[in-house]
Amino acid sequence: MLEVKGLNAWYGESHILHGVDFEVRDGEVVTLLGRNGAGKTTTMKSIMGLVPRREGSVRYNGTETVGLAPNFIAKAGIAFCPEERGIFGSLSVSENLMLPPIVAPGGLSVDEIYTLFPNLRERAGTSQGTKLSGGEQQMLAIGRILRTGAKMLLLDEPTEGLAPVIVQQIGRTIREIKARGFTVLLVEQNFRFAATVADRHYVMEHGRIIDMIPNAQLEANMDKLHDYLGV
């Protein structure tokens, strides 16, 4: 479904990604693991076209997206939930929810999103999206991209800085949307959380993919993983 080959990316003079290769198959949940600065977030932004310069190939359902502007990549059916969540303070909660345009049929209805995140229904009238708690903002950030009908979701550290009970709820949500047929690429620092939702894990270091571990073999590779992540 998503095929990344030889992806390079630059911020100004600094060369961040040095030929990233991986793929995400239809209906899978795949994580990118790695230390800080390994290039996980840059990989996500490069897929979305949000870096100043990129080269290589990112094919989505066979369509080459390198060279497309971000809005066309979104229209192709990839939705992005950024690190720090990207909730808009000048928009109300419901405006935040309705902001991303529908790109394809098959997205969740607003009602289904509220069923998934009951807290949001209560807070829908809040005038500033940023007045929500961190957990609620994260739910809003995920909820709004479920509406669009995009089948490929990029979630950048959705559990960062959240309380354990919220992290569990995010985990349930990811399993739920996987069950509904969405495909998810997840950036995580927390591989214990990743293990509860993902099918496969790619490990990044210095702007490259250095290993791939199927979730079933995670236990067996624990030592190696500790070594990669420096924990």
């Binding site: 809005n71 990207g86 808009f88 928009l91």
Partner: peptide
Amino acid sequence: FLGARLRAATENAPLVQAFGVD
């Protein structure tokens, strides 16, 4: 709705574009 897009783009234009807004 158009105004909401405008306000959002004023805050963070790249993200709004990554949502599919031209």
